[in-house]
Nucleic acid binder design. Structure first.
Lengths: 110, 110
DNA sequence: AATACTGTTCGTATTTTTGCGAACAGTATC
DNA sequence: GATACTGTTCGCAAAAATACGAACAGTATT
C-alpha cells in the first residue's frame, strides 16, 4: 500500500505552477498584453478591451495582483494598473529555466 | 449599455492561456520536469514521483496530452510517456514572445 | 485459463474558478 | 449635499478542476 509516500511538491514547482495558473485564462493574458503595450492602464481601459462584466474584470485583476504579476494604484477616482516589473522578471526567468531544464533528450521516445 | 461589445479573445491568447493552464498545477510541472530529466518515463515512474493516486496521475497526463505537451506510447504492458518536442518548442516560443512583448515601458507607473 | 501486473476509465464528492448583477465606497462635479 | 463617475465587494449560480476508489481492459506469466 502506498499510504506512506509523503512526497510533496517543491517550492519552485509550486511557484511556477502558481504563475502558470495566473496566466491560464485568455482574459488575463489579454490584460497583461494590454498592460505591456499601453501606457495608460486604467481599469476602464482594460474593461473596454474585454468581453466580460466589470465585476469579472476586477476579479481577474485581483488574481493577477495576488500572483504578483501586476500592481494597482489609486489615482483620483480611477485605478491605474501596471505590470510588476520585479515579479514579471522572476516569472520570465522561472519559465525560461523550466523550458530549458526540460530540454528533451535524444534517447527519449525515438 | 455595453451589450454589443462582441469582443473575443485572439487565437494566440487562447492558445497561450491553454498552455499556461496545462502548466498551472504542481503535479503537472513535476511530471514535465521528470520527463525532461529522465530517459525512462513509464507511468509507474511518474506515479512514484507524485503524492497522488494513480487515477489522478492518469488524469493529469491526459490533460498534458490534450494540451499537446506530452505524448504516450504503449510498450508491452506499460505506457511510455515523453515530451512532445514540436509543441514544447511552440509553447516555449509563445511564452518567450509573450514575456518579451510585455516588456514594461519606463513611462508606466513610475 | 487463472494470476499478476500496468494503466485507463467510471462514478462520485469536494473544491475552485468563472461569471454576473446588485449593492457599496470613494472621488469629483454640480 | 445631491449627482455622476469609477471600481471593488457581495451573494449567488453554473461550470470546471482536483481527487479518490472501484471497476475495467490489456499484456505477460504461470
Amino acid at each position: 500500500m502506498d499510504c506512506c509516500k509523503n512526497k510533496d511538491y517543491t517550492i519552485d514547482n509550486e511557484q511556477l505552477a502558481h504563475f502558470a495558473k495566473a496566466l491560464g485564462h485568455p482574459a488575463r493574458i489579454t490584460i497583461l498584453n494590454f498592460l505591456g503595450a499601453m501606457d495608460s492602464c486604467y481599469f476602464g481601459d482594460l474593461h473596454n478591451e474585454l468581453p466580460i462584466a466589470k465585476a469579472t474584470v476586477s476579479q481577474h485583476l485581483k488574481e493577477l495582483k495576488e500572483a504578483g504579476l501586476i500592481q494597482g494604484e489609486i489615482e483620483g477616482p480611477r485605478v491605474k494598473y501596471c505590470i510588476n516589473r520585479e515579479n514579471w522578471e522572476k516569472a520570465k526567468d522561472s519559465f525560461d529555466v523550466f523550458f530549458d531544464s526540460c530540454k528533451v533528450k535524444a534517447t527519449c521516445c525515438d
